[in-house]
């Protein structure tokens, strides 16, 4: 279990990015963190990843305090961040350098196959499309079999079709080993289609505003009325998190969609 206890972060320049964020995240759970810009989503994720240290509070994974990058925690960034001098296969195997070469090759081959890029094993990253590159990044993060996978707006730079495709693909991959997924996103649709739980944050300083459980069976139908109602709940929460006075939840759904961020 991943425990966040009153995690806060003040940057050296005085920006108070995050204040007393607490949450317990179960093994295998998918949590989406959503909120307007400047509400500390990425700060929180970087603290969990151990890339930045929290100023206050603690992050613990199964009784281990996280203060630096940890073997059981993987992260996928908004950009693929592939190493341009390594082939696709070597990029995927980047985190497996302790393994003997044969085992590494086998794992990489399986991962390539799993993300549907077996024919690109020897390609350079520059030869991939945006969606393909992000799939390589996902494979690279998953191949060391992390218990927690953090995703920082992983699909926001992609077009709508590719994004939808990759969301389904991610769920599919998640199903293999069921790691904990913590996903920062701007996209209400994405949050509702993926998450068991949506954490809505509010800005200045960033803190937890509301928690919404998405009790929908997978695979989820993006067009069902139930799906829509969850979306509306998240949107409403977002609007309230930004202190917009919303008289009635049902009437504003379309306006909110365009306005909340």
């Amino acid at each position: 279990m991943l425990t966040l206890e009153r995690v806060g972060k003040t940057y050296p320049n005085g920006v108070h990015a995050l204040e007393r964020f607490s949450a317990d995240i179960q093994r295998g759970e998918i949590v989406a963190i959503i909120g307007g810009s400047g509400c500390g989503k990425s700060t929180l994720l970087r603290a969990i990843a151990g890339l930045d240290r929290a100023s206050t509070g603690t992050v613990t994974l199964d009784a281990t305090a996280i203060t630096a990058p940890h073997a059981k925690i993987g992260i996928i960034f908004q950009e693929p961040r592939l190493l341009p001098w390594l082939s696709v296969a070597d990029n995927i195997g980047f985190g497996l350098s302790e393994l003997p070469a044969a085992a590494r090759r086998e794992k990489v081959a399986r991962a390539l196959d799993r993300v549907g890029l077996a024919d690109k094993a020897n390609a350079w990253p520059r030869e991939l499309s945006g969606g393909q590159a992000q799939r390589v990044a996902i494979a690279r993060a998953l191949v060391p079999q992390p218990e927690v996978l953090l995703l920082d707006e992983p699909f926001s730079a992609l077009d709508a079709f590719t994004r939808r495709d990759l969301q389904d693909h991610l769920l599919d991959l998640w199903n293999d080993t069921r790691p904990t997924l913590i996903l920062v996103t701007h996209d209400v649709d994405e949050a509702v289609v993926l998450a068991d739980r949506v954490l809505v944050m509010r800005p200045r300083p960033g803190r937890l505003f509301e928690e919404i459980k998405i009790n929908l069976a997978r695979p989820r139908d993006r067009h069902s009325p139930l799906f829509d109602s969850f979306k509306r709940r998240v949107l409403t929460a977002l609007d309230r998190s930004l202190d917009r006075n919303v008289p009635d939840a049902d009437a504003k759904s379309t306006a909110g969609e365009a306005m909340w961020w």
């Binding site: 990843a49 890339l51 630096a68 990058p69 940890h70 073997a71 993987g74 992260i75 960034f77 950009e79 961040r81 190493l83 980047f94 985190g95 350098s97």
Partner: peptide
């Protein structure tokens, strides 16, 4: 910096 961060997430030592 973003590429260096990739190295950090895979816990590379200084020489690595």
């Amino acid at each position: 910096r973003k590429i260096v961060e990739v190295g950090r997430t895979f816990r590379l030592s200084g020489p690595a």
